[in-house]
Design a protein around this nucleic acid. Structure first.
Lengths: 332, 332
DNA sequence: CTGTTAGCGCTTTCAT
DNA sequence: ATGAAAGCGCTAACAG
């Protein structure tokens, strides 16, 4: 691989000049510029970002930590972020923590060594340990969907409480009274907030909350399958279920179908996230759509802003979601 | 951020020594080591991978180019790769090309500037341009699922022809005779091969191929929906459909359901890939399971091998897939 | 309009 | 058992 020095020599100029023609950073006479450019093309010279980074203290690289990207929701979010980052010349290093604190810590360490310019952290399981780890990690950082106490970072979330409310409200509007809820891991604030919204809608409608109508699960299809099975086996099964993410809703519909319960005729189901496949499940899933793309854009923009200008006050943004009515819900 | 020099000064030793205690690369007296380690902890010193990379000509970073990760298949594959890479101390820079040659080229450029140690390239749309781009990209590289003529790279693929055969054979075994096929983009070899397998099974069974039973689509749910709709509207609709990926199969089942066609009672459907959601579609999808995790591992291992030892002969591996029978297929 | 030079943070050869 | 110093490939202040 050619170096700048070699290019300079062959062009009969100094490396300074080569650097300046590459970066357009000061005037260079037309013929020198031409000559240099020719040599660059000829030698297939490609500047080294690592040397540049060492000099400039900027890597144009962003670390992104997600619990795991097997949930299409994350995949879609990542896509939005990567897209936006690319547009402003940043790359993403992807880190799947698998909810494993050890792995997460190891990753964080590597990211710091690689001198990432910023970090995006998406809600995951283990709170406390992480917070202390991040506490003295002085890197621009935006946290998504879960606030880390003691961690200085911009914070972006969707309004999960309202989302849960909207989902439940929709079921209520359809005349349902026996509405169950399948929650995600209860230690995750987004998960908890959706349940809070569910509870609020119930209360507002003057319905009493039944403990056996709230079952906790884990945001996976398998978990949804199990939770729905349990709910449908109740002596008085619900006529509608709010599953707090799409994966669980889809797994749940599968369970209902196997139990001989028709959706939406005998059971209405609403999901959460609006992953791409939600439109094509059987039946197409009514769900709360999170503004994934806008969220990805916002996350990236906030992070880049902080990287660029630095010491602005911490930002906090909450995005709204909306109900997408499809065919998994019907009047009682 | 502390530097090695600062650590050395505060510990009253040379940077050489600090370097050696960090890397365990020569004997250091116990008390000096202790002192250095203490200062490192105290100053929260983290070595700079960028300086290291400049010196060593190794970034421990792998670039991964995918057409887009909205297909869960890719997400799952990425996960396998990232997992395996992490274990051997490598990070992944994720690049979504969106089948856009311009974006792909831009990314490749950036990756080269960042001096990635290796590149993983997963099948995408635009062939020719890419091949020439990659031709003089002298970086260890493994290509997945699509051979690039003129590009020196290890090549790893799944046996799509056999997969397509298996899927069709299964339908045949269930007594179906009117078997249609929904293919992916025909310029993608994996897509083409699956169709070839379909054709072979048909021929072997002595069935004539009907042109209107082969419809080309695009590997998305929406595409599958449209293709199935078209097929079911035929005067003589098929009794079974081989959809060449799961996304299309799921979209197709959705279309069938809306057309009032029951799966599997009136229509058998087999998919391809075995994405996580396939087990939980309604009905659960019979599909050809690609060994995604094993594939991710193999890809990573082959790439790392090439990075480490360099000049070994080009490798070529083909992995087998297997049919996972679930409930979207039934005897005629 | 162009070049000299120091230095970014590290590794490693060569001395001692 | 330890250190001095060169150098990885680039940028930019300073000088001309």
């Amino acid at each position: 691989m050619a170096t700048m020095k070699q290019v300079a020599e062959r062009a009969g100029v100094s490396t300074t000049t080569v650097s300046h023609v590459i970066n357009n950073t000061r005037v260079v006479s037309e013929d020198v510029r031409k000559r240099v450019l020719a040599i660059i093309a000829e030698t297939r010279y490609i500047p080294s970002a690592v040397a540049r980074s060492l000099k400039n203290d900027r890597t144009h690289t962003i670390g992104m930590m997600v619990p795991n990207n097997s949930n299409p929701y994350f995949a879609e979010l990542i896509q939005g972020i990567e897209d936006a980052a690319f547009k402003v010349g940043y790359n993403i290093i992807l880190c799947n923590a698998y909810d494993d604190p050890k792995k997460q810590a190891a990753y964080l360490r590597v990211l710091m060594e690689k001198r990432i310019d910023g970090l995006i952290l998406v809600a995951s399981g283990s709170d406390d340990e992480l917070a202390s780890l991040l506490g003295d990690l002085h890197v621009p950082m935006v946290v998504v969907d879960r606030e880390l106490p003691g961690v200085e970072a911009d914070f972006i979330e969707a309004d999960h409480e309202t989302g849960g409310y909207l989902a439940t409200r929709h079921l209520l509007d359809m005349g349902h009274r026996d509405i169950a809820c399948v929650s995600g891991p209860i230690n995750l604030p987004p998960s908890r907030d959706r349940v809070v919204g569910y509870l609020r809608a119930l209360k507002e409608a003057g319905l009493k909350f039944r403990l056996d109508y709230l079952v906790r699960s884990d945001f996976t299809s398998a978990g949804g399958f199990a939770a729905f099975s349990q709910l449908l086996a109740l002596k008085k099964p619900p006529t509608a279920i709010f599953a707090s993410n799409d994966l669980m809703a889809i797994g749940g519909i599968c369970a209902a179908s196997q139990a001989g319960v028709a959706v939406p005729r005998q059971l209405s189901v609403v999901g959460y996230d609006d992953i791409a496949l939600a439109s094509y499940s059987t039946p197409p899933l009514t769900t709360v759509a999170q503004p994934k793309y806008r969220m990805g854009q916002l996350i990236t923009q906030v992070l880049i802003d902080r990287i660029m200008v630095g010491d602005v006050p911490l930002r906090r943004e909450m995005l709204q979601s909306e109900l997408k009515q499809r065919q998994s819900t019907a009047p009682l």
